[in-house]
Simulated scan of single mutants.
Amino acid sequence: MTPVVRDAVDGARMAVGTLTAIPVRVVRVDRVVAGWAMALAPLVAVLLGGLCAVVLAAALTVGLDPLLASVLAVGALAVLTRGLHLDGLADVADGLGSGRPPEGALAVMRRSDIGPFGVVALVMTVLVQVLALASVVESGALTAALALGTGLLSGRLTITWACVRGVPAARSEGLGSFVAGSVAPWAATLVSAAVVAGCLLARPGFVPALLLGLVAAAVLLCHTRRRLGGITGDVLGALTETATTTALLVTAASLS
């Protein structure tokens, strides 16, 4: 196994181990591996999308209502990711909503409790995801599975771009500081091209949803950089949920 292939394999393991609850033996963790892990984050979306699609299809097959089936699929996603991204979304909402300067906002985000801004962000996000997915189910289970996969790809591709060189970390410790700036721009561009190409092959009409999810996350990233000074692990989670939710919403709107 060549060094590059070994780095890529170790990065894929780290990506699965970091971004999901799936047990994976991570044998090596360093900046090179972290760069590969964040670049390969969209592969995790494919894995999660496949598993959640199975849950959705099984629920529909046994005759459950599309809304209930969507609840189970979104719930399965939360379980498979340990609620990591949802937790980050809540923390970022509380930090930004506090109106404090960067140090104070980051201190709020480090707390284990969830404040009112976090609760509202979580409720609204999960509701939109469930209702949007349920709306898409009316166009068919396969369409819904592809829509969910598109949303997950948008969310994980956002992680890749948030970790490109030039995007600083908001603090000197934590996941954000470890992965910030670890992805080369050429790698992010190559992965993005692969994701878009895959979407074009699977369902061309979903590409706008993928891209608009990235745009929504980019707006949030610009805001968090201005308010907090850079990214944290919580910011990555918030970006992921923002992109995923936006992509699902756009898909539902386009099919309604």
Rank of each mutant, 00 (worst) to 15 (best):
G95K: 13
S182G: 05
V46H: 06
D94Y: 04
V120D: 03
V123G: 11
A253G: 15
V191W: 08
G49I: 07
L67P: 02
V27W: 02
L175H: 01
V24W: 05
F178Y: 15
R31H: 14
G149R: 09
C52K: 00
A169R: 14
A217V: 00
V62D: 11
I231K: 00
A216Q: 07
A78K: 03
A8N: 01
L175T: 04
R165Y: 07
L201A: 15
T232P: 11
T143H: 00
A193E: 06
T189D: 13
G149H: 06
P116R: 08
M109E: 01
H223W: 14
D7A: 15
S177L: 03
V219C: 11
S98T: 05
T20G: 11
T150A: 07
V9C: 07
G63R: 11
L106E: 03
V207K: 01
A145R: 00
L190E: 06
E241L: 14
G140D: 09
W161S: 08
S177C: 11
F206Y: 12
V16D: 07
G237P: 04
L131P: 04
A78S: 08
A247Q: 05
I231V: 15
A39K: 02
A144G: 12
M109I: 09
D91N: 12
P204I: 02
T18S: 13
P204H: 04
A45T: 07
A57Q: 10
P101H: 12
R31S: 13
R227V: 09
T245C: 07
W161D: 05
V9I: 15
V126W: 03
A170H: 07
G149I: 07
L127E: 09
P101K: 02
A218G: 13
G149K: 01
D7C: 02
S135I: 02
T246W: 09
L131S: 06
A21S: 15
T20I: 13
G118D: 10
P185Q: 04
V5K: 03
V235K: 03
